[in-house]
Simulated assay, not measured.
Amino acid sequence: MAEVDHETVYFSGRVQGVGFRYNVLQVAKEYEVCGFVQNIPDGRVLVEVEGLAAEIGEFVTAIESRMHGFVRQVERRAMRRAAIFKGFQIR
């Protein structure tokens, strides 16, 4: 199986209960990325995304731009691994 770029991204701030996951899903439709978005118990939103590194970078930047009033911090961890996602979904 071919390796792809992958990022685990954590968004902190007022990111739950404000339509954040739905907006991430809408942004994902504009990019060639696969993965998921989900709320996590500590109040952050987790995005797991894979694709080309440049596409992932633009995708994360677009999320930050669209949700700029709600995001306080973004933590990103990049790696290469075998592709495991099909499409993009809310979990």
Rank of each mutant, 00 (worst) to 15 (best):
R77D: 09
T61W: 03
G69E: 13
F59C: 04
I56P: 05
V33T: 11
R77F: 00
Y22K: 15
M79H: 01
E50L: 11
F70P: 02
R76T: 09
E48K: 15
G51N: 03
F36W: 08
G87F: 07
V47N: 08
P41T: 10
H68M: 03
R66K: 14
R77G: 01
M67R: 08
E30P: 01
F59D: 01
E64T: 05
T61E: 14
N39A: 09
S65L: 05
A83N: 02
F36V: 02
N39M: 09
Q26F: 00
V49A: 10
Q73P: 00
I63V: 14
A83R: 15
R21V: 06
M79I: 01
F85N: 06
A82K: 11
N23R: 13
V37M: 10
K29S: 08
R66H: 04
M67N: 08
R21F: 02
E30N: 13
K29D: 08
V74C: 09
S65A: 10
Q26C: 07
V49S: 09
G35N: 10
L46K: 15
V47W: 07
Y22I: 06
K86P: 00
F36D: 03
V45A: 12
G51M: 04
E75V: 13
E75P: 00
V47T: 08
K86D: 10
Q73F: 01
A53F: 04
E75D: 13
V60G: 04
R21A: 05
V33K: 07
A82G: 08
G69M: 08
F70V: 02
V49M: 05
A54E: 14
A82W: 00
S65P: 00
I84Q: 10
A28R: 10
G69F: 02
D42V: 08
F70C: 10
V24G: 06
V24I: 11
E50N: 07
R80M: 07
A54R: 14
D42S: 11
Y22D: 06
R44D: 08
R76C: 03
L52W: 02
N23A: 15
R81L: 06
R81G: 10
L52V: 11
V27Q: 12
I40S: 01
H68R: 15
F85Q: 02
R44Q: 11
Y22C: 04
R44N: 10
E30V: 03
G87Q: 07
G57D: 15
G57P: 01
G43S: 12
G57Y: 01
I84S: 09
A62S: 11
R72H: 07
K86S: 12
E32A: 14
A53S: 12
V37A: 13
E55Q: 13
F85I: 05
V33F: 05
E64A: 13
G87S: 09
L25P: 04
C34H: 13
L46T: 05
K86C: 02
V47Q: 08
R80G: 02
K29L: 11
H68Y: 07
N23S: 15
F59A: 04
A28N: 09
R66Q: 09
K86I: 03
E32Q: 13
A62K: 13
M79Q: 09
Q73S: 06
L46Y: 08
R81V: 05
Y31C: 12
K29R: 15
Y31V: 10
I56R: 08
V27C: 09
I84W: 00
L52T: 06
C34I: 04
V49T: 11
